[in-house]
């Protein structure tokens, strides 16, 4: 019998239980509404947004921001998998089978990496008509988008995992995770440019990892890799690493 790696088997299981028609529709519909309704509606208020050396029209700016937003949103799945596994006894069941905690943790990371990339590809495809005038895909920018998608997925997946490990009740889990993700979504550069925002808000924007993720993906799409974006990449990697270690430690210590 061919021995399939335990992590791959768990990833297969994670994707089966997580991805359903409702999830995919939500993943497409929600960004579509934002890009094509809010994007064009706000054009009257926000004419163009300077980004690197370019001036982007607002729909293009928003569509590129939606990629980061969607990656963050889709990694909620990581928290939901862990929370559901604990609530429905599957964590214990998996741990009494041919798997280790390392397998379980890595399978979650691979799952959110796949979902993050899938999400990014989906919004890139959906938003392409909006930002294709300014797009500068090349050998540097495409890996940059993939890098941002994967690191961002690990970062937000780790946040979701930490919350799911710490909270048992469904009410607590839903309230906390929605509050954290809502704050991250709206106090970031995903929807509005930092230029022109009041100073305290601009500072908050850059205390939020989603801003870093969104900036990196925008830099990848529009070919504007600056020193600041490289700094953002380093910060994102460092944050993702720290949060991943915390999430792993918490999962390792999780008692039965």
């Amino acid at each position: 019998m061919i021995q399939i790696n335990p992590i791959i088997r768990l990833v297969n299981r994670n994707l089966t239980i997580s991805i359903n028609p409702g999830f995919i529709i939500w993943q497409i519909l929600f960004p579509l509404i934002y890009i094509f309704v809010a994007g064009f509606a706000y054009t009257a208020l926000i004419d163009s947004v300077p980004f690197g050396g370019k001036n982007l029209d607002y729909p293009a700016f928003l569509a590129s921001g939606m990629i980061g937003f969607n990656i963050m949103n889709s990694t909620l799945i990581s928290g939901i998998i862990i929370w559901n596994d604990r609530r429905h006894g599957m964590f214990e069941q998996i741990m009494s089978g041919p798997f280790t905690r390392t397998h379980y943790i890595l399978s979650n990371i691979v799952t959110i990496g796949i979902i993050g990339l899938f999400s990014a590809a989906l919004i890139t495809a959906v938003g392409y008509p909006v930002f294709f005038d300014s797009v500068e895909f090349n050998i540097v920018t495409i890996p940059l988008i993939i890098f941002g998608s994967v690191v961002g997925a690990i970062l937000f997946g780790s946040i979701a995992s930490i919350i799911s490990v710490k909270l048992r009740s469904s009410e607590g889990f839903n309230v906390i995770i929605n509050t954290v993700f809502l704050f991250c979504a709206f106090a970031s550069t995903a929807f509005y440019p930092v230029q022109g925002a009041p100073q305290p808000l601009a500072t908050i924007f850059y205390l939020n990892p989603l801003s870093y993720l969104v900036d990196i993906i925008r830099a990848g799409i529009f070919g504007q890799v600056t020193d600041f974006v490289i700094t953002e990449m380093l910060v994102l990697v460092a944050l993702a690493a720290i949060l991943f270690v915390i999430a792993t430690k918490l999962l390792t210590k999780l008692d039965f």
Partner: peptide
């Protein structure tokens, strides 16, 4: 764990 089967007291299922 590779050689045993376990049905624990608490229910376990994927809803």
């Amino acid at each position: 764990r590779k050689k045993i089967g376990v049905v624990l007291q608490q229910p376990s299922y994927e809803p």
